Amino acid sequence: MSRDFALGAALLVAAFVVCHLLGLREHVSVLSGTPPPAGGGDPLLGVAYALAWFGAVVFAPILAIAAGVLAALDRLRSRRPAPPRPAPPPG
């Protein structure tokens, strides 16, 4: 389960990096009603970049912390000795 959280955090950061490398940052200005410096601008690209940014900045750290906490708890649980089994009844 902790690997799922870590993978989710990595995917959110990767999506943001891809959007940033594609140059979608300049399209975010459309959301405030100002044209991008290069002209044109697609509002959907601006929304995609904003969602990717929020995912990387807000949700990815939460998932990464949850993955770390779950991994630590799993490690602590595995170190505890198993409780002794009760002896079977004589018979």
Rank of each mutant, 00 (worst) to 15 (best):
Y49P: 12
L76G: 11
D4K: 06
L73N: 15
G40D: 08
L21Q: 12
G8W: 02
E26W: 00
D74A: 15
P81V: 09
L45D: 14
A10M: 03
P37Y: 07
F5T: 01
R85K: 07
P90Q: 13
R77E: 15
T34A: 14
I65T: 12
V13A: 06
P36H: 04
A72P: 09
V58C: 15
D74Q: 12
P83H: 04
L51M: 15
L45Q: 10
A50D: 14
V47K: 05
R77C: 14
L44C: 09
G39W: 13
H27A: 07
A10K: 00
E26C: 01
P86H: 06
P43N: 09
L22H: 11
L11G: 02
L63N: 07
A52L: 08
A72R: 06
R80I: 10
W53Q: 02
V17R: 10
L31Q: 07
P37H: 07
V58K: 03
V17E: 14
C19D: 11
A10G: 01
A71L: 14
P36S: 06
A66G: 03
A64P: 10
A14F: 11
C19A: 11
A66H: 03
V13N: 05
G91I: 09
A87S: 15
A15V: 02
P81K: 04
A66N: 02
V30W: 08
A50K: 00
V69S: 09
D4H: 00
R75W: 11
R77I: 10
I65K: 04
P89H: 05
L31W: 08
S2R: 02
L73W: 13
R75K: 03
G46P: 04
P37S: 11
L12Q: 10
D42T: 05
L24V: 08
A64V: 06
P83F: 07
G40E: 09
V57G: 02
G41H: 08
P89R: 06
A72I: 04
P86A: 09
C19N: 05
L21G: 09
V18C: 13
A38G: 12
P83T: 06
A15C: 01
A82P: 11
A38T: 08
G40C: 05
L22A: 15
L51A: 15
A50C: 07
S2F: 00
A6S: 02
